[in-house]
Nucleic acid binder design. Structure first.
Lengths: 224, 224
DNA sequence: CACCATAGCGGACCCTAGTCCGGTTGCAAT
DNA sequence: ATTGCAACCGGACTAGGGTCCGCTATGGTG
């Protein structure tokens, strides 16, 4: 289920190895006991979350099932959100890979508008599959600003800039990520919105924003 | 600073009196001691929040400053978010009043698009003034679904339906409220976005969504 | 192989949100 | 005024997230 990530490892075990990594720091090799414990923790957490649902698992539970002290847990993962994000790391990488090097329209090659559609759909699927974990991380304030989140944000900024060079792409990305927020997704599903309806909403949002940007932005941007 | 609300009182002291109120329940008059304590609590909370900032005030602090047990606090306000919302109650009513009966373009009389612009600006101003309280309430999960929030949501649904009868107004309202979320506002301000920039973003979002809805919706709606 | 510096460990501890329940107080009807 | 009852009060208690710091195991070094 979980494999030790092969490359360089940062605090939370996220990303890193995909970058050139020419850092000056002398490759902080992970000690053997640390690695063992990390695996045990991830395993324990995955089991417990699967058994009782994310809501009903405390950090103490995870620590004791992993046979590890609480301090260890927090040393390796920072906080509960960090643990959740670490559990999603693999899946996150898959999505990132598809975005960056995968096939069009999610990957490069398609026009920006198509890639935006595809990104939203892929992300909403991702949220649909991992809603519990993601919305817990978001609730705890650990999602926004996390490395994967920053990558998604950058991706959106790039696509929006391509599609509408004169628009405020950063703000567009912010708004779009608000709308894709896992908590909001879960809330809406509970409220009776269908996944498809949310996807349609996303496409319409993208369409609207892009058209408004293409039409209105040149004038607005020149005045700012 | 705080006045006792004159009319009927619901659990959190929110809204109510603006409705016709033909309820069958025999007007649950508030007991004198209860009213006294409620005022003392609100006063104490307002003082403490002003002194140290919302983040650094615990419910125990509020209770002890108010000279009241913790149980009383929770009985009257439900939870910390409820307390925050109660503190904003007056301000909330003002905004609601302006939306419903105030001058155009925020109030009735202006075309829906203008009212949407105005609503966003008014709400963002509101958030700018009460960001701490609001984002705490939002963090705690007590904002979405609260009576004021529902009213704002309904307002948006109505305006969106008027402006684009065939579009998915409910979803639009959901998305728009995500974007106006106080936590997001505060985060962006901290990140260097100016208030004006956010307002411009809002207008562009509204423009885009409405145009996309007017253009694309009739076809899309007939197929759904 | 013996030693040492240090990353890593673990569980006692703190803080705060939220619950519970026995005692108290206000209100209305007699 | 008295009494019954319900709402109300308050503070002890629980639970869970997160911190701290003395101890230990690890892996490099002489």
């Amino acid at each position: 289920m979980f494999r030790a990530s092969g490359g360089a490892i940062d605090q939370n075990g996220v990303i890193m190895e995909s970058l050139p990594l020419v850092t000056a720091s002398p490759a902080p090799v992970e000690r053997a006991d640390a690695a063992r414990n990390r695996l045990r923790i991830l395993q324990a957490a995955a089991e417990l979350f699967a058994e009782r649902g994310v809501e009903h698992v405390s950090m103490d539970d995870v620590a004791s099932r992993a046979g590890v002290g609480k301090g260890t847990l927090y040393r390796r993962f920072g906080d509960k959100a960090g643990l959740a994000l670490a559990l999603l790391d693999e899946q996150d990488r898959v999505l990132q890979e598809q975005m960056i090097r995968g096939d069009a329209p999610l990957g490069p090659g398609a026009p920006p508008r198509e890639r935006l559609y595809a990104f939203g759909e892929a992300y909403l699927d991702f949220v649909a599959r991992h809603g519990q974990l993601l919305s817990m991380a978001a609730d705890l304030g650990g999602l926004n600003g996390s490395p994967p989140w920053q990558l998604y944000r950058t991706h959106l900024v790039v696509l929006l800039s391509e599609a509408a060079p004169d628009a405020d792409a950063e703000m567009g990305a912010e708004f779009f990520l608000d709308v894709l927020n896992p908590c909001a997704y879960v809330r809406r599903i509970d409220q009776g919105f269908s996944h498809d309806r949310l996807v349609r909403g996303w496409r319409q949002l993208v369409d609207g924003w892009l058209d408004a940007a293409l039409r209105g932005a040149p004038a607005a941007a020149s005045t700012s």
